[in-house]
Nucleic acid binder design. Structure first.
Length: 592
RNA sequence: GCGCCCGUAGCUCAGCUGGAUAGAGCAACGGCCUUCUAAGCCGUAGGCCAUAGGUUCGAAUCCUAUCGGGCGCGCCA
């Protein structure tokens, strides 16, 4: 979603404004960063020797070649410099290499290839020592310090309390929660927030619907409210209300008055009831929030009035047709928007602006809103309103992650999701049917930008076709190998002798090691782009790599050194799979 | 009509802030269990990266049009 994220001024940095550079000061990135340093040092040395004259040098980007013949990593700096240096790219590459060391044995070989790539071949010793580093980092392996403990707030789900959470909310919950976990894993100080509307027209409809049910009026009755909520759950709320139950939601308790004529009491009770249900859904999904903000609080604290006054003082509002308008078109919107309706009352986006101003005043210079793309129009409006406040809030603040629609398939047919009709697939139904792990995995396995087909049959299937089982099975299979090894007298984890690890030479072993070492980079990239699917893809690839190794080599052999080395490698593999799953809130079963 | 997202193998999707011969899984076809979990592995086949221009050393990736699909376009949220 390029338009939503203004480009950063920093070289080599894609995300907006002032924030820690994900590759700066990151000691956990195993290979990429040391290589970048080698290249940078070489460039400086070449400049000092007057062999290169470009100043400043562009950011050094270390890529990963598609083909193994091209090494483990590559750098395109020579091609970037060629024009300015007025030299052939390969000639520039030659100069760079001449001034570059081998990084204390990190590099086995450096080549110039193709149009001017510098290809790096990491030494086997360096890969082997990466395993030791992975062991040393333990549960922390995969975590990085890219965020430098800076504050970030993530708002997600934010469903209105008018019904149970549905599939769309589920995707939002899974993506939002995963983003929070990934940001935490990359060293950010994350606050998770849920905002809900407990004041608008939809809530009035909810109250009227519950009241109607209290009075024994159903949807077929002519007295049924025009935009009433017809779901069965409304009947349950009404019954609870009439029997004067007490519900707990967020940090409040609400006891029903049981009076069918007190609409306000019905509203408060219904909101608490449905919020309570949503909390249970989220709990079943293992999704938790730090802060709940109620729309009504923005009114009661005077924040909405403050915002309206500020916008007026700044000269961005005007009266027309009996309504108060905000000149959002002056800030990139298609047209101006009504703030106060001619019949009184503010439109939803006014408290939205107040809410975001409050976020800003709470000190969050970085805020991410995860929501369905059907609410895309709020992005421009909220940002326009914040600009009109003239409070020094950056133009691209807050950032947005918008996820596309979910289609649910069962038995090869689309399951229609309709609040009106009975075929209403809730998040809870889905979790109950396919399980929490599979639900989470499936919701995040595609890029948020892409529409998602959720195949219930596949998600339930215990077969390699099902990516979540495929990944979890890799972990369970390794655990099983260790049980077997223990029976045969090998203690796990078997740390190989100092030179024992060098027994790992087979292509499948080396490939596995390289993939393990890539986890920190993958986590960083995932955080940078707000794309959890990069981690599920990584996990699928890692699991495949392990299964492939398993198919070709025996772990427990006659050779104790080789057995020890392989057990050690598999211990790191299991650890890496578990750590990556853990970052996504998915379990790593030891037995399946 | 306007805005946003998407368009890559028959299907579902990756493709790492522009890089080297475009990848995976499923489906299809052919192999592999007296041996650490077959919930697995190996192989074959499958492509004008929607189309047309442009930017440059280089484009699936960036820009502009066009076509196709989704979402939004309210004094609802």
């Amino acid at each position: 979603m390029p338009r939503l994220f203004p480009r950063c001024q920093h070289q080599g940095c894609r995300r907006g404004r002032d924030h820690p550079d994900p590759l700066q000061g990151n000691s956990h990135t195993m290979m990429r960063h040391p290589i970048a340093s080698l290249v940078e040092t070489a460039l400086q040395a070449a400049a000092a020797a007057n062999e290169l004259n470009t100043s400043p040098f562009p950011a050094v980007i270390i890529g990963t070649p598609a083909s193994p013949e091209h090494g483990d990593f590559s750098c395109n700096i020579a091609m970037q410099l060629a024009k300015a240096e007025r030299k052939a790219p390969r000639q520039v590459a030659e100069i760079v290499i001449r001034h570059m060391g081998n990084g204390n044995g990190l590099l086995a070989k450096t080549e110039i290839a193709g149009p001017g790539f510098i290809n790096f071949f990491i030494s086997a010793e360096a890969w082997h020592s990466a395993l030791l580093e992975i062991e040393a980092q333990g549960d922390a392996f995969g975590r990085t310090s890219a965020g430098k403990d800076a504050k970030v707030q993530v708002e997600f789900v934010s469903a209105n309390p008018t019904g149970p959470l549905h599939i769309g909310h589920g995707r939002g919950a899974a993506i939002g929660d995963s983003i929070c976990r990934i940001l935490t894993a990359t060293g950010w100080d994350v606050t998770r927030e849920f905002y809900y509307n407990d004041a608008g027209q939809q809530i009035a409809n909810l109250a009227l619907s519950v009241q109607a049910r209290c009075l024994g009026i159903g949807p077929d009755d002519p007295r049924w409210p025009a935009d009433g909520y017809q779901g069965e759950y409304i009947k349950d709320v009404a019954e609870s209300y009439l029997s004067r139950e007490t519900v707990h939601a967020d940090d409040q308790h609400v006891t029903a008055l049981g009076d069918s004529h007190d609409l306000d009491a019905i509203r408060r009770f219904a909101v608490a009831c449905l919020r309570h249900e949503q909390d249970l859904d989220l709990k079943a999904f293992d999704v938790h929030f730090d802060v709940f903000t109620l729309e009504s609080s923005l009114y009661s604290e005077g924040r909405v009035d403050d915002v309206v006054r500020l916008l007026g003082e700044n000269g961005h509002t005007y009266e027309q047709d009996g309504a108060l308008w905000l000149r959002t078109s002056a800030f990139g919107d298609d047209k101006d928007r009504v703030m106060r309706k001619s019949g009184g009352g503010y439109t939803y986006f006014v408290p939205d602006i107040a809410y975001h101003l409050a976020k800003w005043e709470r000190g969050f210079t970085r805020v991410i809103n995860e929501q369905g793309s059907d609410h895309h129009s709020t992005v421009t409006r909220v940002r326009a309103g914040l600009q009109a406040l003239d409070r020094g809030i950056p133009k691209g603040w807050p950032e947005y992650v918008l996820h596309q629609m979910v289609t649910v398939m069962r038995g090869g047919e689309e399951v229609k999701i309709s609040k009106r009709a009975g075929s209403y697939v809730t998040l809870r139904d889905l979790i109950d049917e396919v399980g929490r792990d599979a639900t989470r995995f499936f919701f995040i396995m595609r890029k948020p930008d892409s529409q998602l087909v959720f195949d219930i049959d596949l998600a339930k299937q215990q077969s390699p076709d099902n990516p979540v089982y495929y990944v979890q099975y890799a972990h369970a299979r390794i655990c099983s190998i260790f049980e077997n090894a223990a029976e045969k007298g090998f203690t796990a984890p078997e740390r190989p002798r100092a030179d024992g690890i060098a027994a790992l030479r087979a292509p499948e072993e080396m490939q596995l090691i390289k993939l393990l070492a890539a986890l920190p980079d993958t986590v960083d990239e995932s955080a940078l782009h707000f794309e959890p699917h990069r981690l599920t893809n990584y996990l699928s690839e890692l699991a495949g790599c392990f299964h492939s190794f398993y198919g070709k080599h025996r772990v427990i052999t006659e050779d104790p050194d080789l057995t020890g080395a392989r057990l050690y490698l598999l211990k790191r593999t299991a650890q890496t799979v578990k750590n990556a799953l853990s970052i996504l809130g998915i379990s790593a079963p030891e037995r399946m």
